[in-house]
Amino acid sequence: MTTPQRPSIYFNVHLVSDSTGETLNAVQRAACAQFENVQPLEHNYYLVRSERQLERVMREIEAAPGVVWYTISDEALRARLESFCRERGVATLPVLDASIAMLGRHLGISANHKVAGQHALDQDYFDRMEAINFTLAHDDGQNVNGLIGADVILLGVSRTSKTPTCVYLANRKVRAGNIPLVPGVALPDFMEKLGEKGPMVVGLKISAERLVQIRRQRLISLNQDEHTIYADEDAVRDEVTQANRLFQRNKWKTIDVSRRSVEETAAAILNLLNERRGQI
Rank of each mutant, 00 (worst) to 15 (best):
Thr3His: 12
Thr3Tyr: 10
Tyr10Ala: 08
Val13Lys: 08
His14Phe: 05
Ser17Arg: 09
Asp18Lys: 02
Glu22Cys: 08
Thr23Leu: 11
Cys32Thr: 11
Phe35Met: 07
Asn37Lys: 13
Gln39Met: 11
Tyr46Leu: 12
Tyr46Asn: 14
Leu54Tyr: 05
Leu54Trp: 06
Arg56Val: 14
Ile61Asn: 02
Pro65Met: 03
Thr71Ile: 07
Glu75Lys: 12
Ala76Gly: 12
Ala76Ser: 12
Leu81Glu: 00
Glu82Lys: 08
Glu87Lys: 11
Arg88Thr: 05
Gly89Ala: 04
Leu96Met: 15
Gly104His: 09
Val115His: 15
Ala116Val: 09
Gly117Phe: 04
His119Gln: 15
Arg128Ala: 02
Met129Ala: 13
Thr135Asp: 05
Ala137Arg: 12
Asp139Thr: 01
Asp140Phe: 00
Gln142Gly: 08
Val157Lys: 02
Val157Ser: 03
Ser158Val: 04
Lys162Gly: 00
Thr163Asn: 04
Pro164Trp: 00
Asn178Arg: 09
Asn178Ser: 10
Met191Cys: 08
Lys197Asp: 15
Val201Lys: 00
Lys205Tyr: 12
Ile206Tyr: 03
Arg210Ala: 08
Arg215Tyr: 04
Arg215Ile: 06
Leu219Lys: 01
Ala231Cys: 02
Asp234Gly: 14
Ala235Ile: 05
Glu239Val: 01
Phe247Trp: 06
Trp252Ala: 06
Lys253Glu: 14
Thr254Cys: 06
Arg259His: 13
Arg260Tyr: 08
Ser261Tyr: 02
Ser261Asp: 05
Glu263Ile: 07
Leu273Lys: 06
Ile280Arg: 15
